[in-house]
Computed example of a mutant assay.
Amino acid sequence: MTKSKKMFTHEDDLPVLGLDPYIELIQASSSSNLDQEQAKLGLMLLWLSDYVLDAMDIELAPFGITESKIDLLLLLTLHDVRRATPSAIAERLGITRASATSMIDWLEKRNLVIRNHSKEDRRKIYVSLTDEGRAFVANILPTYWASCASSMVDLEPEERKVFEKLVNKLLKSMQRKLKVER
């Protein structure tokens, strides 16, 4: 394997490796029929998605919330007239029911969402935004959209068009693979 660069400031920090050691690991550990260039690009896409989420969480930190919780609040905002069960929320967000329940608990403690029992079937629970939740979403959206936009600032207009085409293609592919849509 490639020697790592010694670029760290604290003795317990891990050194920055860059992409090369990962490429070598792909070459050494993948099956012979794997397209290694695709694996490298997929890895880079994973890293990019992690960085985008990290940047969003930094922007949302002053509001005391993370992107995943905002994702749930946006889902409820956009489906405000429909009743949403925790199971439906989990399915739509592509998370486990336990994760959805944990997020709903967190949001409920902050009075952003409320659980209501169905009048027809008391075993069924619906989640909806509170008035405070609606106001919170309205307050945070300008920061959220500005953070989304900031991810694209280094792309020229023509590059953004190509990127949009590629991202749409990848989104459709992943939606088919996972049998889920937003």
Rank of each mutant, 00 (worst) to 15 (best):
M1K: 14
K6F: 01
M7T: 14
F8N: 07
F8L: 07
F8E: 04
F8Q: 09
T9A: 13
H10K: 14
H10M: 05
H10Y: 04
D13V: 01
P15W: 02
Y22G: 03
L25M: 07
I26E: 04
A28F: 01
S29M: 00
S30E: 08
S30N: 09
S31Y: 11
S32L: 14
D35T: 07
Q36W: 03
Q36P: 05
Q38D: 09
A39P: 01
L45C: 12
L46N: 12
L46R: 11
W47Q: 10
W47C: 14
V52W: 04
L53T: 15
D57M: 03
I58L: 14
L60R: 12
G64P: 05
T66A: 12
S68H: 12
L74H: 02
L76C: 08
L76I: 04
T77S: 11
H79M: 10
D80R: 07
D80H: 13
T85D: 02
S87R: 11
A88L: 04
I89E: 03
A90S: 08
E91D: 06
R92M: 07
L93Y: 02
L93R: 15
G94V: 01
G94F: 01
I95W: 04
T96A: 13
A98G: 09
S99Q: 14
T101L: 09
M103F: 13
W106C: 09
W106I: 05
R110V: 05
N111R: 15
N111Y: 12
L112V: 03
V113L: 04
H117R: 14
S118F: 00
R122M: 08
R123P: 03
R123N: 13
K124T: 07
K124V: 08
I125W: 10
Y126C: 10
Y126V: 11
S128Q: 07
L129P: 02
T130G: 05
D131R: 11
D131C: 06
G133T: 15
R134K: 14
R134H: 15
A135K: 15
F136T: 08
A138D: 15
N139W: 03
I140K: 12
I140C: 09
L141P: 00
P142Q: 02
T143L: 06
T143A: 15
Y144A: 03
A149G: 12
M152Q: 11
V153F: 13
L155V: 03
E159I: 02
R160V: 07
K161P: 01
V162A: 14
F163Y: 14
F163R: 15
K165F: 03
K169A: 13
K169H: 10
Q175V: 01
L178E: 04
L178W: 02
K179G: 10
K179T: 13
E181T: 15
